[in-house]
Structure formats: structure tokens, C-alpha cells
Nucleic acid binder design. Structure first.
Lengths: 161, 161
DNA sequence: TCCAATAAGTCTTGATTTAAGACTATATCG
DNA sequence: CGATATAGTCTTAAATCAAGACTTATTGGA
């Protein structure tokens, strides 16, 4: 049987597949977590994550190519770049925060969550809640019905009689 | 240098690390996507994902061990089980939906998103919005300040003089 | 001038993980 | 009995990753 290769995932007709084709490997979300915590330089990512340099280099290059991070020079002679989140990268915040809060809830540490998030607008520490863009109410898995849109047909199986 | 091994990740003092130690490999979120779409049996996961059977078997076992899925018998003689989301698994919905909507937005397909989500309570198709648990307002990456709580010290490096 | 340090990588080798597909186990159906 | 169905396990080869040495460019100090 023909299994899925990782590089085919980007061509799938599913938004999650295409998302995971970019950020779904074992390291990328941790790199982005650090980026949200203002880690910006190659060696700082390496020290923070204890990731192999070759892998870090490759992942950062992909994130730049996908415009999730951008390289910004922070000195001349020699030119050195740091990696910063783009708007597209910042848009991943809800997904990452949801994963963090799921971990806070289901794999708690003795002393409570190691990082607390404070909402600047209202001043309170908060957890993330998934809300409906139309009515603003909280949404759980059971409150949602899924509708598949007619996909362009891809393969047709003809059954011999 | 001592790199991070994947199995050490669960011991890290970071909720995202502990989360990714369980669901952060290349396949698990796709398995869970299928579970949310009501795929339940081994062979259906295999056909849907085109994943190698050995890997599927191993991932399902881990998800059951972590109580994200549970095995429920659906027939006797021979006993056959199907895999269903637990409450803990259902709690992953916000994170997965956020990833899906990020993909919808940044990797759109020609004909619009392949799956539309309808909020049963209000009746509208919707996108997910990250909201603050305290004030209910939408939250973006720039609206949040992070506070690190004092971590219990784990290693002490003694520098010879 | 020469040597060490800094930053950001690349390259090589051996270990780990994954893909492909054959094989196993159990029970029903014809 | 033999074929089919479901849910796996096992083996081998391919792909990916970890560890750490090596490279390049420049600055600063002895």
C-alpha cells in the first residue's frame, strides 16, 4: 500500500494536514514557543531547546521560507540575523496557548503552571477559551457540527461486477 | 552537549513540552482529527491516514495509556474494540480547531475551506477565536504578558575557580 | 601580528524512527 | 474446509535525528 509521505501532506485537501506539514514535526512548535518568549538568536534557541544544530538550522530555514519567522539583521560586520515572528507566525498564538493550557490542566506540576498569562486589556491572569466568532460564546467539541464541502473528486474506484 | 531526548520532554517544567511529549509527533494530531470526525476503528484510521500499521498501533496504545482515547468493545466473538475520545481527548478540541483555522487562513484552497464548522448554539458557521476566561474578550499574542513562576531549581552548575 | 572568542552555521557518523508489506490470530460465513 | 474480516505483530530497508568536529567571518586583546 502507498503510505503517506510527510512531504505529500501539504497537498492534502485538509487544513490540518497542510498546517502540520509545516509545523507538525517534533521540534517546530517548541521553537515557536521560544519565539513567543522572545528567544531570537540561533545559539539561544540551541541552548534553550538542546536541539541538534543541523535540525535547528533546517527548521528555522523552513519557518522563514513559510514566512512564519523572518530574519532581521541586528548587527553589521559581520552581519548577524535574528529570527522574529511575522504576523502569520503571531497568528499561531491561539493554537499554541490552547496546547499550553491543555497541558496545564491535564499534566499539572506540583506548584501550579510554570508560566502565567496575563491579559493586558482586563488585567487578569487567564486561561484560553475557544469562542465562536459569530456569537462570542464559549465552544466545546460537542457544540459543533461539521459539514464537509463538496471536494473536487480525486480518485474513483470502479468496482468490477 | 547533551541534547534533549524525546522521552525527556515529559519531565520538562513547561506545559507545552509535556503536551508535545504525548501528542507532538508527526501522526498523533492527525489521528485525533480523525477521531473528532468519528473515525473509530483500526482499519479505518489506517485507510484514512495511510499510516503504517505498526506506527498506528503504537500511537493508539499511547493515546489509550494517556487516557486521551479509550477502547470500547463494539462486538463479542471475536471481541473487537473501537477507539473513542475521552473527556481529556475532547478537551483538545480548541487546540486542534485553532490549528485547522490557521491552515484555512494561511494555506487556503481554491474552493474555500474543505470543512465548515457550525456552532449548534447560535446556528452560524464560525471560526475559532481565542478568548480570555476572565473578561471574555478576544485575545491576540500582543495582548498578553507572561509571568514566569519561580521554578524549583533542578540542576546546579558549580563553577570551579 | 597572532591567538582567542563569538555567532551562525555545515558536515560526518552512528543511533533511532518510520515505511512497506508479509505474517499471525480468532471467529464467522458459505 | 476454505475464504473473509478485523486487529494486530514482525522484519527489513529507508529516512531522520543526535553528537560533536569543522568552517567562516570578524573583533578584541597580548
Amino acid at each position: 500500500m502507498d503510505r503517506m509521505r510527510w512531504n505529500d501532506l501539504a497537498k492534502e485537501d485538509c487544513s490540518l494536514s497542510r498546517t502540520l506539514a509545516v509545523i507538525g514535526d517534533r521540534w517546530t512548535l517548541l521553537i515557536l514557543r521560544d519565539a513567543f518568549l522572545r528567544v531570537r538568536r540561533f545559539e539561544d534557541f540551541e541552548a534553550s531547546l538542546k536541539i541538534a544544530r543541523r535540525v535547528l538550522s533546517e527548521r528555522l530555514a523552513l519557518l522563514v521560507e513559510e514566512e512564519i519567522l523572518k530574519k532581521v539583521p541586528y548587527q553589521e560586520r559581520p552581519v548577524r540575523f535574528e529570527y522574529r515572528l511575522t504576523e502569520k507566525g503571531l497568528d499561531l498564538y491561539p493554537a499554541i496557548l490552547s496546547l499550553v493550557h491543555w497541558g496545564d490542566r491535564h499534566y499539572p506540576t506540583k506548584n501550579g503552571p510554570p508560566i502565567v498569562h496575563n491579559h493586558l486589556n482586563c488585567g487578569h491572569d487567564f486561561r484560553s477559551v475557544l469562542a465562536c466568532s459569530q456569537c462570542g460564546e464559549a465552544v466545546g467539541a460537542r457544540d459543533v457540527a461539521v459539514r464537509r464541502r463538496a471536494a473536487t473528486p480525486r480518485k474513483r474506484r470502479i468496482r468490477a461486477s
